[in-house]
């Protein structure tokens, strides 16, 4: 509770915040009980307590991502209200994730219950499948993920399944110094080996801060060898060490989900450095322009020096008064 107290925004200013403080303790306690789900719709949920009305139903939307072998599953939760889709982010009970079947965790092959988690404020939750599982389930080439939610006071129980076949994307480069092209190859597990997948829309991407920049021909489909290639832009700024992450990406495929695979290459130009923010009028106090600092210090020193001298005159006057 101590930590909570320090968080109070008005705790220090003192006037009339005692009430807020008290209320916040109560709220804080509630929050603790509720696993810190921020009670955005507190009013809603209390008026809709299970006894009075039926529970609400919602839709779960599952998607899968395989990124250089790392697997994750995302749940997006929404529901229809007056024919509008609204985000659901106030589900209180956790979502459970199972692999292949709904049962307790089976340590021998990694199936069964994997984990649980709560929705974030955007009504989403992402399961990142731990590395260990990937090792355990290395023999598996088709994954069925089941997400289950039950016994929430406001919402109906729900279950959703997604089945993903195993696929991966690798990327190779060719060409001279100035002209380079990248080729992404999409392969999927069939019977006993990874074989190329034709006729899929494979995107060639460069990783950027917020998203990926596409290059090559837009909407290109993989050929019979599962390949798509495109010329790399060579004038693009990359990371500070001149590297850039290039990858191929298959998006929201029915069979494979989203698959991406890529590699970091050193062919970008160095990004511009931010100009070193020196002593400017808009920098912090310690970084004030020297002219300004020196001149003001000089002026202040002269004036206040004189003031102190004047005060010393007062003291001398007092001394003179004491001496006979």
């Amino acid at each position: 509770m101590k930590a909570m107290k320090n968080d109070l925004p008005y705790h220090k200013s003192g006037i009339g915040y005692r009430r807020i403080f008290f209320i916040s303790i109560v709220i804080g306690a509630l929050l603790l009980i509720n696993n810190f789900t921020i009670a955005q719709d507190a009013k809603d949920s209390s008026s809709l307590s299970a006894g009075q009305m039926g529970k609400l139903s919602f839709t779960m939307n599952l998607s899968s991502l395989v990124s250089n072998g790392a697997r994750s599953v995302k749940v997006q939760v929404s529901r229809k209200e007056n024919k509008k889709t609204v985000i659901v982010n106030d589900v209180r009970s956790p979502f459970n994730l199972y692999l292949n079947e709904v049962k307790a965790y089976d340590a021998s092959d990694g199936t069964g219950w994997i984990g649980k988690l709560n929705l974030n404020y955007e009504g989403e939750a992402v399961f990142v499948i731990p590395d260990d599982f990937n090792k355990l389930t290395a023999g598996l080439h088709e994954y069925t993920f089941i997400v289950k939610m039950d016994s929430d006071p406001k919402y109906e129980d729900a279950e959703e399944t997604i089945t993903i076949a195993d696929a991966k994307i690798s990327i190779v480069f060719s060409g001279e110094d100035s002209v380079k092209s990248a080729t992404a190859i999409l392969t999927a597990w069939k019977d006993s080996a990874y074989i190329p997948v034709p006729e899929k829309e494979l995107k060639l991407c460069i990783k950027r801060t917020f998203n990926f920049l596409l290059f090559g021909e837009a909407g290109a489909l993989t050929d019979s060898t599962g390949q798509v290639s495109g010329d790399l832009p060579m004038d693009l700024p990359g990371n500070t060490d001149g590297t850039i992450i290039i990858f191929g990406r298959l998006e929201d495929d029915e069979t494979y989900g989203t698959v991406e695979g890529g590699i970091s290459v050193p062919w970008a130009i160095l990004p511009k450095k931010n100009p070193v923010t020196g002593r400017t009028l808009w920098s912090s106090g310690d970084n004030a322009p020297l002219v300004l600092v020196i001149s003001s210090v000089v002026i202040i020193a002269i004036i206040w020096g004189t003031i102190f001298y004047l005060v010393s005159l007062l003291i001398r006057i007092k001394r003179l008064g004491k001496s006979p």
Binding site: L310, L313, L314, R316, I317, K318, L320, G321, K322
Partner: peptide, 16 residues
């Protein structure tokens, strides 16, 4: 400040 109306005190005041 224990002012005694001394000429020296006046001088200081005028200077100030």
């Amino acid at each position: 400040l224990g002012w005694k109306n001394k000429p020296e005190q006046y001088k200081l005041v005028k200077k100030a």
